[in-house]
Design a binder for these strands. Sequence first.
DNA 1: TCTGGGGTCCTAGGACCC
DNA 2: TCTGGGGTCCTAGGACCC
Length: 421
Amino acid sequence: MYAIVDANNFYASCERLFNPTLAKTPIVVLSNNDGCVIARSNEAKALGLKMGDPYFQIKHLVNKHAIKVFSSNYAFYGDMSNRIMTVLESNWPETEVYSIDEAFLCLNSLPQSQHTFFCEQLQKKVRQYTGIPVSIGIGPSKTLAKLANHVAKKQLKAPVFNITSERQWLQQIEVGDVWGIGRKWGQKLNRLGVYTAYDLSMVEARTFKRKFNVIMERTILELRGISCIAIEKSEPKKEIVSSKSFGQLQTEFNPIAEALSSYAARAVEKMRKQGSLASTISVFIRTNPFRKDLPYYSKSTGFQLINPTDDVRAITKYAKMCLRQIYRQGYHYKKVGIMLGELINNTQCQFNLFDSQSDEDKEQSDKLMQVLTDINHKFGRHAIHLAAEGVNRYQPWKMRSTFKSPHYTTNWHDIPVVYAN
DNA sequence: TCTGGGGTCCTAGGACCC
DNA sequence: TCTGGGGTCCTAGGACCC
């Protein structure tokens, strides 16, 4: 038996948390660069705003209905996420953090009769300790728990729903809303006469494995209540990507190299946090695919490192080498990014037989990197960085973030002040 | 003017091995 | 006429998730 805890309109709920006057106001949160809608409060959903709508296309609705708009504030959402996960983990041992706003619990060690009550208590506790409303779905497989959560939110408007003895709900759920069925598969299933979650649970699993793949077979079995996907403990990432669209299109090499250097630093930071070294590095660059009036260009390149490393100087140097290979003058670039791959544990590094780097070099690099990490941890990200990231205050490639809320919970200067009379 | 970022898994096909 | 059987590794592309 599984439960899935899923925050309601997570980013929108976070923005509301320190701004209670917005309790009834429609809210949307935009993606990086203030590009698309990625979160909506219930009021905004009711006004017909869709996930992924480009902001510039919905601006008229924003004005018409006085919708409150926020740029995404991941430092804030990430911190709220940690708080929620801490509440869950300290109240239940078998939890799996599944995404920034979701966690699975394995309930097998609790008697069936207590599942619903336990989750109701947990739901209240999260609300009380963090201020964020969550919904919990319960079922005999992860897929059914997700489905129960969907029913709780969309149909019942209830905080907790246990689908175990209420399987008739499967007939109410469109097959495209099933966890693991995306747009393409949803359409293909419709063409095969499968329209609801119930329909899918009744098809012959082996036939559909042939028509799709083994993931489809598992989803079918899971819908029947046969659990095929267990709780997974968090593994280190196998690859780490850092990329962003520019605030304005870029044509020159230098600002793009600056942006790339800053993403490289970000990628290294993430990689060092999980204790890995990169064995491969690749860089990609592309123009804006939506601009039909400008020539399109997209290219990537990369290479294998002889010595896996987590030294930001080395990785930045190699990244810029890659960029030099693929940069062409005359294009309007929209995005650049770096990918660190074949990550290995930094304690299991296999040294190269023909390694020219001495042990002292390595030791010094390790120490230097640790000092950088420590300084930035103490004085804030970016307190110290490579000059390659740029030293001018004006960075034309920086993303737009026009409507960003304060870092309420992660920055001393942004902590809200409350006056009591 | 304006359209996100970061991941994982699976399959097919080609190259290669004995 | 007829052309083995069994395997690994790599890559590209497509699908999915949040």
